[in-house]
């Protein structure tokens, strides 16, 4: 059984979807295709099923928040890290999402493993994945407000206790009783 010749992902996607790619970036050996959000699912399907590409595994979905002064097309970025076991290489798809409406189509139809990875991004970063089969919160309790991994969400630490401020902190700290 011979393996078909490997294709350059950027060129292949450009040929199949001329409008889809905004930018192609290379850094430290990682290739990033910056896509228009509306093309994401179609490009993902294409990358998975085309001979010479076969990105059959979705390694990771990670969302990043560029708040406050972002010099990027949108406040949020969502990176999809694909892995091709056949050609032993990785590829990153990236979409930028606007601050007021961070919505993108789900890729659970392409890789079922995206299910929880997207739920995590939805819970912690507040990215809305349209068409997701199960959009409950994953990590935080159901009644939690806000999305903790956004940059404008405070880390929420407690002041370190010293003898001069111990009394003040203990006044606010809940204490358990029998």
């Amino acid at each position: 059984m011979s393996i078909p010749q490997a294709l350059d992902p950027a060129a292949a996607v450009k040929a199949a979807f001329p409008d889809a790619i905004d930018d192609v970036r290379e850094y430290a050996g990682d290739t990033t295709l910056v896509l228009k959000p509306e093309y994401l699912v179609r490009v993902a399907q294409y990358l998975r099923d085309t001979k010479g590409l076969v990105y059959n595994v979705l390694s990771d979905v990670s969302a990043v928040d560029y708040w406050p002064d972002y010099n990027r097309p949108g406040r949020f970025g969502v990176s999809y890290h694909l892995l091709s076991m056949l050609y032993r290489r990785r590829l990153r798809l990236k979409v930028y999402l606007a601050e007021d409406e961070p919505t993108v189509e789900t890729v659970t139809g392409v890789w079922p493993g995206a299910n929880w990875l997207e739920r995590e991004a939805q819970d912690l970063m507040g990215i809305d994945f349209k068409g997701h089969p199960d959009s409950r919160r994953l990590m935080m309790p159901d009644d939690w407000q806000g999305h903790p991994h956004r940059r404008d969400y405070p880390l929420g630490y407690e002041t370190v206790m010293f003898s001069f401020n111990a009394e003040e902190i203990m006044k606010h700290k809940p204490r358990a009783t029998e």
Partner: peptide
């Protein structure tokens, strides 16, 4: 872990 997710000591919940 001095952050949002953690109870800062179980003595907030149980003696």
């Amino acid at each position: 872990y001095n952050n949002y997710a953690l109870v800062q000591g179980v003595d907030e919940v149980i003696p």
